[in-house]
């Protein structure tokens, strides 16, 4: 198995696009964090410095979702590039146990995504502090609510990227693995939400509140995932639904990987 870990590591690190995709969410987190801190301080009317809750950095900025998009490219490439360039035959000739191949790929990519998500959160937080500090402001961190929020944010990124990986496994088309989650999250689900809310005569006018929504909206994957970044409602339930969607896609992807011709 060590040979396969080395193989995956070299596969990952010897391509320039990997480093670009890993750098992008960090740069983005730094920029958004600093801008968030800097411009939030403009709201300060007291002149004594504004205190902003850490949770706003996570759920009011798009950083975690954008980080998930960039990292989903890396995760999807773990399998998509192998099919695209025919390398899957080289891989499976060296490592004929397909289940092990997937276990190592998913484990390594999951660790990478989680490490990157931790870095993104840290950079976002640090940049926001740097941005707000000159005005005497600060970022308030409440461990009781913000620790679980960070855990949910990391898992949200992981599930998002795993969905991209699963779609790529099923379709063997890397572009679909990358684009489909974005289209679903930003286009399809909002349209469904609007249609359902119009049909049922209700609207909460903002972030999805899973508990008060019709069942069909509570089961939408990416809306559920987004609700995991909130601190109100039942964010854990949203994360659970999102994770179930991830598993639902991973299982057929896994079966197809093992059973289909390479």
């Amino acid at each position: 198995m060590s040979g396969q870990i080395r193989y995956e590591w070299l596969r990952l690190t010897t391509i320039r696009s990997t480093w670009i995709m890993l750098a992008m969410p960090i740069v983005l987190a730094a920029a958004v964090g600093w801008l968030f801190g800097h411009f939030s301080s403009a709201l300060d009317r007291s002149g004594q410095g504004l205190t902003i809750g850490f949770e706003l950095l996570i759920n009011a900025s798009p950083v975690m979702t954008l980080a998930a998009v960039f990292l989903s490219v890396v995760f999807a490439q773990a399998i998509g590039q192998e099919y695209r360039h025919g390398l899957i035959r080289v891989t499976l000739t060296q490592f004929p146990h397909r289940n092990r191949v997937l276990v190592v790929k998913i484990a390594m990519m999951s660790i990478l995504v989680l490490v990157m998500a931790v870095i993104v959160v840290a950079v976002l937080w640090g940049a926001a502090i740097v941005g707000i500090a000159p005005t005497g402001g600060s970022i308030r961190y409440i461990a009781a609510t913000d620790n679980p929020l960070i855990v949910r944010a990391l898992l949200y990124v992981l599930v998002f990227t795993a969905i991209a990986f699963a779609i790529t496994m099923i379709t063997r088309i890397i572009q679909l693995g990358i684009i489909l989650p974005i289209v679903l999250a930003l286009l399809v689900e909002p349209i469904i939400r609007v249609i359902v809310l119009i049909a049922t005569g209700g609207s909460n006018g903002g972030r999805p509140d899973i508990a008060s929504e019709p069942l069909i909206l509570r089961l939408l994957p990416f809306s559920s995932g987004q609700s995991a970044l909130a601190t109100d409602g039942d964010p854990w339930q949203g994360l659970l639904i999102f994770a179930i969607w991830g598993a639902v896609l991973l299982i057929p992807g896994w079966i197809l990987f093992v059973r289909r011709d390479a």
């Binding site: 070299l10 360039h85 035959r89 080289v90």
Partner: peptide
């Protein structure tokens, strides 16, 4: 099994380093 089995952006040397991992 096929001549064009490599990532076009990975150098020849790195491709072989990867292939020799096992």
């Amino acid at each position: 099994l096929d001549a064009k089995v490599f990532h076009p952006q990975r150098t020849a040397r790195n491709h072989l380093r990867m292939v020799g991992s096992d």
